[in-house]
Design a protein around this nucleic acid. Structure first.
Lengths: 123, 123
DNA sequence: CTGAATCCTTTACGATACTG
DNA sequence: CAGTATCGTAAAGGATTCAG
């Protein structure tokens, strides 16, 4: 069982659900996988590997399985030769992606600001 | 320098800024600290330590400094005896917190669903 | 093609003691 | 009170190899 810290449960009223979300997207590449998955309808393993350049097969596979266990990714295996497996987002996964959008916007703005700062310079 | 993967930069149009955001909130306790910080106006070190039960001084301090370097936390030191230091969110920190809200909502919904499922049972 | 298995490195985090 | 310094552990991730 996951021990969740609830800083001010009695005071505020709303519990910090970010913990729960962070555990789901906590892996180093998970948001990227999520992103890649939301780009199109279904993605194959090798396709994902190409879409997330630095990742290794091991990490991709384990992340994928964790995300599947978390109910945000659906894995469909067509028992063919050669093997073909397709990954897609579940409804919950899509909703997670939507919930991630404001955060992505924040990150984008931030990056733009930082790039501007480099021109302005601190010294 | 941070190596940013851009899966489909040429295709989609919008770049995945979630990476940037994840690097800022990636620490195990950072969202909790953020949460604690957004609860009130200014928080002192010991106060934060109490609000985030499991955290150690070392991690709290290092996270705080990283968040300060990331420009989302402002540290005000009153050079007094005994020492007093107060932490608060910057504008960017507040905006980050706002951007985190949908994710928190997703997490809360999810938790509620899972708790319901435990009653319904999988088998 | 999709993945499992193994081994290794890195990094984050935790416990404790100490300082201005 | 508000940290820093040091040491140890655990978990995540990376490189490579092997298999169905």
């Amino acid at each position: 069982m996951v021990t969740v810290n609830r800083p001010e449960d009695g005071g505020g009223g709303h519990v910090c659900g970010i913990d729960t979300a962070m555990e789901v997207i906590g892996g180093k590449w998970k948001v990227l996988i999520l992103w890649a998955l939301h780009e199109g309808p279904e993605r194959r393993f090798g396709e994902l590997r190409r879409m997330v350049p630095g990742i290794t097969e091991k990490v991709l596979a384990s992340h994928l399985r964790e995300m599947e266990a978390d109910g945000i990714v659906r894995r469909v295996s067509y028992e063919e030769v050669p093997p073909r497996v397709e990954y897609g987002l579940t409804k919950d996964g899509v909703r997670l992606n939507d919930a991630l959008e404001p955060l992505a916007a924040w990150g984008r703005e931030r990056r733009e600001d930082r790039e501007r700062e480099e021109g302005t310079g601190p010294g």
